[in-house]
Simulated scan of single mutants.
Amino acid sequence: MAYWLFKSEPSTWGWDDQVAKGDTGEEWDGVRNYQARNFMREMAKGDLGFFYHSQGERAIVGIVEVIAEAHQDSSTDDDRWECVDIKAVRPFETPVTLDDIKSDGRFDDMPLVKSPRLSVQPVTAEQWQQICAMGNTEA
């Protein structure tokens, strides 16, 4: 299993929107960055990801699961763009903010710190465990 982070602007698509989709989940569409798209191509069904609210909140607020591997993004006819489908698994007991992550030296190499604009990014198993613990949430 691999771990990921999915960033979204809560005013466009937030945790509550994801939860409302239930087990059917939702396409993680609209990604127009080659590196982020390539990360989605690496994802396997059952992989887990952090759901991150960008902009004002800037915090990890929940855990999602990849329920469909990379396929054509239905929001465009351009076949260069693919996406995965994800569903909400559980919220974080305590959101983990970007400031929390940046102030903790264990995450200096994390893409969220080094490449903050990237909307889909990998998370190591160690980072996954540590951030779940920070959020008082079962890994």
Rank of each mutant, 00 (worst) to 15 (best):
S54R: 07
Q55N: 14
G56M: 14
R58T: 12
R58C: 14
R58W: 02
I63D: 09
E65N: 11
E65L: 06
E65R: 15
V66E: 03
A68Q: 15
A68M: 13
E69H: 02
E69N: 07
E69Y: 00
E69C: 10
H71V: 01
Q72D: 09
Q72Y: 00
D73F: 01
D73L: 04
D73W: 02
S75H: 04
S75R: 14
S75E: 04
D77G: 14
D78I: 04
D78K: 14
W81T: 00
W81E: 02
W81S: 11
W81N: 02
E82N: 10
E82H: 12
C83E: 08
V84E: 06
V84Y: 03
D85T: 10
I86E: 03
K87A: 14
A88G: 07
A88Q: 08
V89A: 07
V89W: 01
V89K: 10
E93F: 04
T94E: 13
T94F: 06
P95R: 08
P95G: 08
T97S: 13
T97G: 09
L98A: 05
L98N: 01
L98R: 06
D99G: 01
D100F: 02
I101G: 06
K102A: 09
S103K: 14
D104K: 08
D104N: 11
D104R: 03
G105M: 02
